[in-house]
C-alpha cells in the first residue's frame, strides 16, 4: 500500500483532499464566529451558473475559464448578498438564502436549456468532484518526488490547491489581528481606524477563492462540509481562537486522510467489492468528528451569555 502504487494513485488525491479541506477550514473559523458559516454553502451553489456561462462562452471544458466563471459568479453573489443585507436591513443568513437559491436555480435552468449534455458537466460531477481520478501517471514510487520531469506530470489540481492553501494561510496570518478584533467587536475595531467592511469583504472573497479552487478539484460536498464541520468541532475543543485554528486544521486533515482511506478500503474490509465516493466519505468523517466533539468536547457549554439590557 505504501509503495509505487500509493505514490501514483493515492498520494495526489490525498494531498489535494488535505489542501482543499484546510484551505476551506481556515476562513471557516472566522465565518463561523461571524455567523456567516453558510457562505460556503452559498458559494458552492452560486458557482454553477458561472461555470455554465463560462462553458457557453468558450465552448470547452477547461479548468481556467470555468474557475474564472465560478470566481466571477461567487464575487457577484457576495456583492449581491451584501447589497440585499444592507438595503433590506435583514439577517445575513436570509440574504444568503435568497441569493444562492435563485442563482443555483438559474444555473440549473441554464444547464438544462443549453446544449451541454454532450460534455461532462452535470450536477453529480459538481457535487462529488472526482478526487479518485486525480492520479499521477508519472509517479513511480517515492523517488519520483525528486524527479523534475515526473513532477510535471502531477495533476494540475494539486498545484492549484497548494497555491490556494498558501494564499489562504498567508491571508489569515497577516490579517490575523484585525480579523480577530473585528470579528469580536466590530464597533471598537472601527474606532481604531480599521476598515471593517473591507475586512469582512476580503474574508468572504478569500473564502470564495478557496471554495472555487476546492470545488474544481474535489466538488462542493467537501467545500460545504469543510467550511463548517472542522471549525465548529474545533470551537468545542478550546476557548482560544489561536488553538481553535490549530484544531480545525487538524480535524480538516484528519477528515481528508481518514475519509479517503475509508472510502477506498472501508467497503473492502466490510466484504463489499466497490469503493465509495471519497468526497462523500471525507464530508461524512468531518460530520462524525463534529458529532463526537458535540457530545464530548471540553468546551461545549455557553458559559456566560450576555444579559439583555
Amino acid at each position: 500500500m505504501m509503495g509505487a502504487e500509493f505514490v501514483a494513485l493515492s498520494l495526489p488525491p490525498l494531498l489535494i483532499g488535505v489542501f482543499a479541506a484546510v484551505a476551506c477550514a481556515l476562513p471557516g473559523n472566522f465565518l463561523l464566529l461571524r455567523r456567516q458559516a453558510l457562505i460556503g454553502d452559498a458559494i458552492s451553489h452560486v458557482v454553477l451558473p458561472g461555470i455554465v456561462l463560462a462553458f457557453l462562452a468558450t465552448g470547452v471544458v477547461a479548468a481556467w475559464p470555468m474557475m474564472l466563471g465560478a470566481g466571477i459568479a461567487a464575487l457577484a453573489a457576495v456583492v449581491l448578498i451584501e447589497v440585499i443585507r444592507r438595503l433590506g436591513r435583514i439577517e445575513p443568513g436570509a440574504a444568503m438564502g435568497v441569493v444562492f437559491t435563485s442563482m443555483f436555480a438559474g444555473g440549473v435552468l441554464l444547464l438544462e436549456q443549453s446544449d451541454t449534455s454532450s460534455v461532462h458537466l452535470d450536477v453529480q460531477h459538481a457535487l462529488y468532484g472526482s478526487l479518485e481520478s486525480l492520479i499521477w501517471l508519472d509517479g513511480f514510487g517515492w523517488a519520483s518526488l525528486l524527479d523534475w520531469e515526473a513532477l510535471q506530470g502531477l495533476p494540475p489540481e494539486l498545484t492549484r490547491m497548494a497555491l490556494t492553501l498558501a494564499f489562504v494561510a498567508v491571508f489569515t496570518a497577516v490579517l490575523w489581528r484585525p480579523l480577530k478584533l473585528s470579528t469580536f467587536d466590530e464597533g471598537f475595531a472601527q474606532t481604531l481606524g480599521l476598515r471593517t467592511n473591507l475586512l469582512g469583504l476580503a474574508l468572504v472573497v478569500v473564502a470564495a477563492i478557496a471554495a472555487v479552487a476546492a470545488f474544481d478539484a474535489v466538488g462542493s460536498i467537501i467545500v460545504i462540509a469543510m467550511f463548517i464541520c472542522p471549525p465548529a468541532a474545533a470551537r468545542l475543543m478550546t476557548n482560544r481562537l489561536e488553538r481553535q485554528i490549530g484544531w480545525s486544521v487538524l480535524f480538516a486533515t484528519l477528515s481528508a486522510v481518514l475519509g479517503y482511506v475509508l472510502a477506498g478500503y472501508g467497503p473492502l474490509w466490510l466484504g463489499f467489492e466497490n469503493a465509495v465516493s471519497a468526497a462523500g466519505m471525507i464530508a461524512t468523517v468531518s460530520g462524525l468528528i463534529l458529532l463526537v466533539t458535540a457530545l464530548a468536547g471540553p468546551c461545549r457549554t455557553r458559559a456566560g451569555a450576555p444579559t439583555e439590557t
Binding site: 469580536f184 474606532t191 478550546t238 482560544r240 481562537l241 481553535q244 451569555a305 450576555p306 439590557t309
Partner: peptide, 16 residues
C-alpha cells in the same frame, strides 16, 4: 478610547 455597550459583543467568543 471607546467602551461599547457590553451587550454589543458575543461573550462566547473564544478568547481570554
Amino acid at each position: 478610547a471607546y467602551v461599547p455597550q457590553r451587550a454589543s459583543v458575543d461573550w462566547d467568543f473564544p478568547t481570554r
